[in-house]
């Protein structure tokens, strides 16, 4: 294979010390996790390979900068957009609604 390694293919690279800090999932991370599992259970995605494929196609900067569940979110979004389960308009509209809601809550 002549293709360059994807950003996910890190085995054998060099790196810094392992950060041993324990980290509990934030609630939204549990929600993303549950969403992915339910999307699989309900047949919205066919298997986890589909999701991993989406993660492996992330731009290297995205892969490095996004947190674990943020990568899942991006990958599931692109998978469901591609399959037609959701539309870009619906997604954009919902993102705007959440942003407005968060702005109101943060100022109240």
């Amino acid at each position: 294979m002549s293709e360059a390694w994807g950003p996910h293919d890190v085995g054998g690279r060099t790196g810094g010390p392992v950060d041993l800090a324990e980290h509990d999932n934030a609630y939204w991370e549990w929600q993303i996790d549950a969403m992915v599992r339910l999307a699989l259970a309900k047949g919205l995605i066919t298997d986890f390979a589909e999701l991993r494929h989406g993660i492996e196609r992330l731009a290297p900067t995205d892969y490095d900068e996004l947190s674990y569940y943020e990568r899942w979110a991006k990958s599931l979004a692109s998978t469901l957009l591609a399959s037609g389960a959701i539309t870009q308009d619906e997604l954009d509209g919902k993102i705007d609604a959440i942003r407005r809601r968060q702005k109101i809550e943060s100022s109240s």
Binding site: Q31, I32, Y69, A73, I98
Partner: peptide, 8 residues
């Protein structure tokens, strides 16, 4: 990205 996840 997290907001994208919540929207989804």
């Amino acid at each position: 990205a997290a907001r994208l996840g919540l929207a989804l």
